[in-house]
Design a protein around this nucleic acid. Sequence first.
DNA 1: ATGGCTACTCCTAGTAGA
Length: 262
Amino acid sequence: MKIATWNVNSIRARLPRLLDWLGRQQPDVVCLQETKVVDALFPRADLEALGYQCVFTGQKTYNGVAVLSRTPAVEVLRDLPGEPAGSERRFLAVDVAGVRVVCVYVPNGREADSPHWLAKLEWLERLRAFLADSLATVPELVVCGDFNIAPGDADVWDVALWQGQNLFTGQEKAMFDRLLDLGLTDTLRHHQPGPGVFTWWDYRNGALHRGWGLRIDHILASAALAGRLLKAEVDREARKGSQPSDHAPVIADFGGRPAGEF
DNA sequence: ATGGCTACTCCTAGTAGA
Protein backbone atom coordinates (compact mmCIF):
# COMPACT_ATOMS: atom_id res chain seq x y z
CA MET A 1 0.00 0.00 0.00
CA LYS A 2 1.64 3.20 -1.25
CA ILE A 3 0.60 6.24 0.75
CA ALA A 4 1.75 9.69 -0.35
CA THR A 5 1.47 13.26 0.87
CA TRP A 6 1.95 16.37 -1.24
CA ASN A 7 1.42 20.05 -0.61
CA VAL A 8 0.46 20.99 -4.17
CA ASN A 9 0.15 24.77 -3.62
CA SER A 10 -3.13 25.02 -5.57
CA ILE A 11 -4.63 21.86 -7.08
CA ARG A 12 -5.93 23.80 -10.08
CA ALA A 13 -2.57 25.35 -10.91
CA ARG A 14 -0.94 21.93 -10.38
CA LEU A 15 -3.55 19.70 -12.03
CA PRO A 16 -1.55 18.70 -15.15
CA ARG A 17 1.46 17.85 -13.01
CA LEU A 18 -0.67 16.05 -10.42
CA LEU A 19 -2.36 13.88 -13.05
CA ASP A 20 0.99 13.07 -14.66
CA TRP A 21 2.51 12.24 -11.28
CA LEU A 22 -0.41 9.95 -10.28
CA GLY A 23 0.00 8.04 -13.53
CA ARG A 24 3.71 7.61 -12.92
CA GLN A 25 3.73 6.79 -9.19
CA GLN A 26 0.42 4.94 -8.95
CA PRO A 27 -0.02 5.59 -5.22
CA ASP A 28 -2.97 3.91 -3.47
CA VAL A 29 -3.70 6.86 -1.18
CA VAL A 30 -2.68 10.50 -1.59
CA CYS A 31 -3.10 13.27 0.97
CA LEU A 32 -3.06 16.73 -0.59
CA GLN A 33 -2.64 20.09 1.12
CA GLU A 34 -3.14 23.69 0.02
CA THR A 35 -5.69 22.75 -2.61
CA LYS A 36 -6.88 26.39 -2.47
CA VAL A 37 -10.26 25.65 -4.00
CA VAL A 38 -13.87 25.60 -2.84
CA ASP A 39 -15.53 22.17 -2.96
CA ALA A 40 -17.78 23.08 -5.90
CA LEU A 41 -14.71 23.67 -8.09
CA PHE A 42 -12.58 20.72 -6.96
CA PRO A 43 -11.37 18.89 -10.12
CA ARG A 44 -13.03 15.64 -9.14
CA ALA A 45 -13.81 14.39 -12.66
CA ASP A 46 -10.18 14.55 -13.82
CA LEU A 47 -9.06 12.51 -10.82
CA GLU A 48 -11.89 9.98 -11.07
CA ALA A 49 -10.94 9.45 -14.71
CA LEU A 50 -7.59 8.18 -13.41
CA GLY A 51 -9.35 5.84 -11.00
CA TYR A 52 -9.10 7.94 -7.86
CA GLN A 53 -11.96 8.62 -5.49
CA CYS A 54 -11.82 11.99 -3.77
CA VAL A 55 -12.75 13.27 -0.35
CA PHE A 56 -12.03 16.96 0.10
CA THR A 57 -12.72 20.01 2.19
CA GLY A 58 -11.61 23.35 0.83
CA GLN A 59 -12.03 27.08 0.92
CA LYS A 60 -11.24 29.99 -1.33
CA THR A 61 -7.63 31.12 -1.78
CA TYR A 62 -6.11 29.45 1.28
CA ASN A 63 -5.64 26.02 2.85
CA GLY A 64 -7.79 23.09 1.72
CA VAL A 65 -7.04 19.36 2.06
CA ALA A 66 -8.06 16.24 0.14
CA VAL A 67 -7.55 12.49 0.21
CA LEU A 68 -7.45 10.54 -3.06
CA SER A 69 -7.74 6.76 -3.01
CA ARG A 70 -8.01 3.88 -5.45
CA THR A 71 -10.41 2.01 -3.16
CA PRO A 72 -13.41 3.55 -1.42
CA ALA A 73 -12.73 6.03 1.37
CA VAL A 74 -15.21 6.61 4.16
CA GLU A 75 -15.09 10.07 5.63
CA VAL A 76 -14.56 10.06 9.39
CA LEU A 77 -14.15 13.73 10.28
CA ARG A 78 -13.48 17.05 8.56
CA ASP A 79 -13.14 19.26 11.62
CA LEU A 80 -10.45 18.81 14.21
CA PRO A 81 -12.26 18.47 17.57
CA GLY A 82 -12.04 21.75 19.45
CA GLU A 83 -11.88 23.92 16.33
CA PRO A 84 -14.45 26.71 16.12
CA ALA A 85 -17.16 26.39 13.45
CA GLY A 86 -16.14 27.62 10.01
CA SER A 87 -12.46 27.16 10.79
CA GLU A 88 -9.73 26.99 8.18
CA ARG A 89 -9.81 23.80 6.10
CA ARG A 90 -6.72 22.02 7.40
CA PHE A 91 -7.86 18.60 8.58
CA LEU A 92 -9.50 15.52 7.09
CA ALA A 93 -9.73 11.97 8.45
CA VAL A 94 -10.92 9.04 6.32
CA ASP A 95 -10.82 5.26 6.46
CA VAL A 96 -9.36 3.46 3.44
CA ALA A 97 -8.91 -0.32 3.26
CA GLY A 98 -8.90 -0.62 7.03
CA VAL A 99 -6.40 2.21 7.52
CA ARG A 100 -7.33 5.50 9.16
CA VAL A 101 -5.75 8.25 7.07
CA VAL A 102 -5.42 11.66 8.72
CA CYS A 103 -4.49 14.49 6.34
CA VAL A 104 -3.22 17.68 7.94
CA TYR A 105 -2.07 21.12 6.86
CA VAL A 106 -0.63 22.51 10.08
CA PRO A 107 -0.76 26.31 10.39
CA ASN A 108 2.47 27.92 9.26
CA GLY A 109 3.00 30.05 12.37
CA ARG A 110 4.57 32.91 10.41
CA GLU A 111 6.98 34.06 13.13
CA ALA A 112 8.17 32.52 16.38
CA ASP A 113 6.27 33.83 19.42
CA SER A 114 3.73 35.64 17.21
CA PRO A 115 -0.02 35.13 17.75
CA HIS A 116 -0.05 32.92 14.62
CA TRP A 117 2.74 30.79 16.07
CA LEU A 118 0.90 30.40 19.38
CA ALA A 119 -2.23 29.36 17.45
CA LYS A 120 -0.10 26.79 15.60
CA LEU A 121 0.97 25.18 18.89
CA GLU A 122 -2.65 25.13 20.09
CA TRP A 123 -3.73 23.52 16.81
CA LEU A 124 -1.03 20.87 17.25
CA GLU A 125 -2.21 20.18 20.79
CA ARG A 126 -5.74 19.57 19.49
CA LEU A 127 -4.28 17.25 16.84
CA ARG A 128 -2.33 15.38 19.51
CA ALA A 129 -5.50 14.87 21.57
CA PHE A 130 -7.42 13.63 18.52
CA LEU A 131 -4.66 11.19 17.60
CA ALA A 132 -4.40 9.89 21.16
CA ASP A 133 -8.14 9.12 21.12
CA SER A 134 -7.97 7.54 17.67
CA LEU A 135 -4.99 5.34 18.47
CA ALA A 136 -6.84 3.94 21.48
CA THR A 137 -9.25 2.18 19.10
CA VAL A 138 -7.68 2.21 15.62
CA PRO A 139 -4.52 0.14 15.23
CA GLU A 140 -3.62 1.09 11.66
CA LEU A 141 -3.31 4.86 11.36
CA VAL A 142 -1.21 7.28 9.33
CA VAL A 143 -0.93 11.02 9.77
CA CYS A 144 0.21 12.62 6.54
CA GLY A 145 0.75 16.21 5.66
CA ASP A 146 2.56 19.49 5.78
CA PHE A 147 3.42 19.84 9.46
CA ASN A 148 5.37 23.07 9.03
CA ILE A 149 7.91 21.65 11.51
CA ALA A 150 11.47 20.61 10.74
CA PRO A 151 11.84 18.16 13.62
CA GLY A 152 15.61 17.86 13.84
CA ASP A 153 18.98 19.32 12.88
CA ALA A 154 19.15 17.01 9.84
CA ASP A 155 15.96 18.57 8.52
CA VAL A 156 17.23 22.09 7.79
CA TRP A 157 20.06 23.03 5.44
CA ASP A 158 21.62 25.49 7.88
CA VAL A 159 21.08 24.81 11.57
CA ALA A 160 22.63 28.07 12.72
CA LEU A 161 20.44 30.09 10.38
CA TRP A 162 17.26 28.31 11.43
CA GLN A 163 17.90 28.04 15.16
CA GLY A 164 14.93 29.51 17.02
CA GLN A 165 13.09 30.42 13.81
CA ASN A 166 9.50 29.51 13.03
CA LEU A 167 9.32 25.85 11.86
CA PHE A 168 12.40 25.06 13.96
CA THR A 169 11.75 26.35 17.48
CA GLY A 170 12.24 24.14 20.51
CA GLN A 171 8.51 24.25 21.24
CA GLU A 172 7.55 23.03 17.75
CA LYS A 173 10.16 20.26 17.83
CA ALA A 174 8.96 19.24 21.31
CA MET A 175 5.40 19.06 20.02
CA PHE A 176 6.50 16.88 17.12
CA ASP A 177 8.27 14.58 19.59
CA ARG A 178 5.07 14.38 21.63
CA LEU A 179 3.26 13.20 18.52
CA LEU A 180 5.87 10.49 18.06
CA ASP A 181 5.48 9.61 21.76
CA LEU A 182 1.92 8.52 20.96
CA GLY A 183 3.52 5.53 19.27
CA LEU A 184 3.95 6.97 15.79
CA THR A 185 6.98 6.43 13.56
CA ASP A 186 8.42 9.16 11.33
CA THR A 187 8.61 6.87 8.28
CA LEU A 188 10.91 9.00 6.13
CA ARG A 189 13.37 9.58 8.97
CA HIS A 190 13.25 5.87 9.81
CA HIS A 191 13.98 4.76 6.27
CA GLN A 192 16.48 7.52 5.44
CA PRO A 193 18.23 8.53 8.65
CA GLY A 194 20.83 10.77 6.99
CA PRO A 195 20.76 14.57 6.76
CA GLY A 196 19.73 16.60 3.73
CA VAL A 197 16.50 14.76 2.89
CA PHE A 198 14.19 17.70 2.23
CA THR A 199 10.59 18.13 1.10
CA TRP A 200 10.40 21.90 0.54
CA TRP A 201 12.61 24.39 -1.26
CA ASP A 202 11.99 28.11 -1.71
CA TYR A 203 11.05 29.13 -5.24
CA ARG A 204 13.69 31.86 -5.13
CA ASN A 205 17.43 31.92 -5.60
CA GLY A 206 17.79 28.45 -7.07
CA ALA A 207 17.18 26.95 -3.63
CA LEU A 208 16.48 23.46 -5.00
CA HIS A 209 19.79 22.97 -6.78
CA ARG A 210 21.72 24.71 -4.01
CA GLY A 211 20.35 22.28 -1.45
CA TRP A 212 18.59 24.98 0.57
CA GLY A 213 15.63 22.93 1.72
CA LEU A 214 13.64 21.83 4.72
CA ARG A 215 11.98 18.54 5.71
CA ILE A 216 8.55 19.65 6.88
CA ASP A 217 6.19 17.18 5.16
CA HIS A 218 5.81 13.95 7.05
CA ILE A 219 4.14 10.55 7.06
CA LEU A 220 3.75 9.25 10.62
CA ALA A 221 2.60 5.67 11.01
CA SER A 222 1.22 3.71 13.95
CA ALA A 223 3.17 0.65 15.09
CA ALA A 224 0.92 -1.81 13.28
CA LEU A 225 1.66 -0.06 9.98
CA ALA A 226 5.24 0.98 10.65
CA GLY A 227 6.10 -2.67 11.18
CA ARG A 228 5.25 -3.26 7.54
CA LEU A 229 7.17 -0.24 6.18
CA LEU A 230 9.07 -1.25 3.03
CA LYS A 231 10.29 2.13 1.86
CA ALA A 232 9.87 5.86 2.33
CA GLU A 233 11.22 8.52 0.01
CA VAL A 234 10.90 12.03 -1.36
CA ASP A 235 10.04 12.34 -5.04
CA ARG A 236 12.47 15.20 -5.64
CA GLU A 237 11.94 14.95 -9.40
CA ALA A 238 8.41 16.28 -8.88
CA ARG A 239 9.92 19.54 -7.58
CA LYS A 240 11.81 20.11 -10.86
CA GLY A 241 10.71 21.43 -14.25
CA SER A 242 8.13 24.04 -15.11
CA GLN A 243 5.47 25.23 -12.68
CA PRO A 244 6.26 22.93 -9.77
CA SER A 245 4.84 23.16 -6.28
CA ASP A 246 7.45 24.39 -3.81
CA HIS A 247 6.93 21.07 -1.97
CA ALA A 248 7.90 17.60 -3.22
CA PRO A 249 5.72 14.55 -2.52
CA VAL A 250 6.66 12.07 0.20
CA ILE A 251 5.76 8.43 -0.41
CA ALA A 252 5.70 5.56 2.09
CA ASP A 253 5.20 1.99 0.93
CA PHE A 254 3.70 -0.49 3.38
CA GLY A 255 3.59 -4.19 2.71
CA GLY A 256 0.28 -6.00 2.51
CA ARG A 257 -1.59 -7.54 5.35
CA PRO A 258 -1.55 -11.31 5.83
CA ALA A 259 -3.46 -13.09 3.05
CA GLY A 260 -7.23 -12.84 3.19
CA GLU A 261 -7.50 -9.47 4.82
CA PHE A 262 -7.35 -7.32 1.71
C1' DA B 1 18.78 34.47 2.21
C1' DT B 2 14.08 38.44 5.66
C1' DG B 3 13.41 37.83 -0.39
C1' DG B 4 15.32 38.20 -5.75
C1' DC B 5 9.13 33.47 -6.48
C1' DT B 6 4.41 31.84 -7.03
C1' DA B 7 -0.58 31.81 -6.55
C1' DC B 8 -4.38 33.84 -5.06
C1' DT B 9 -8.04 37.76 -5.32
C1' DC B 10 -14.51 41.77 -6.02
C1' DC B 11 -6.93 41.26 -9.94
C1' DT B 12 -2.52 45.39 -12.13
C1' DA B 13 -1.29 45.64 -5.38
C1' DG B 14 -1.65 43.34 -1.28
C1' DT B 15 -1.47 38.97 1.23
C1' DA B 16 0.47 34.60 2.32
C1' DG B 17 3.51 31.07 2.12
C1' DA B 18 7.89 28.73 5.07
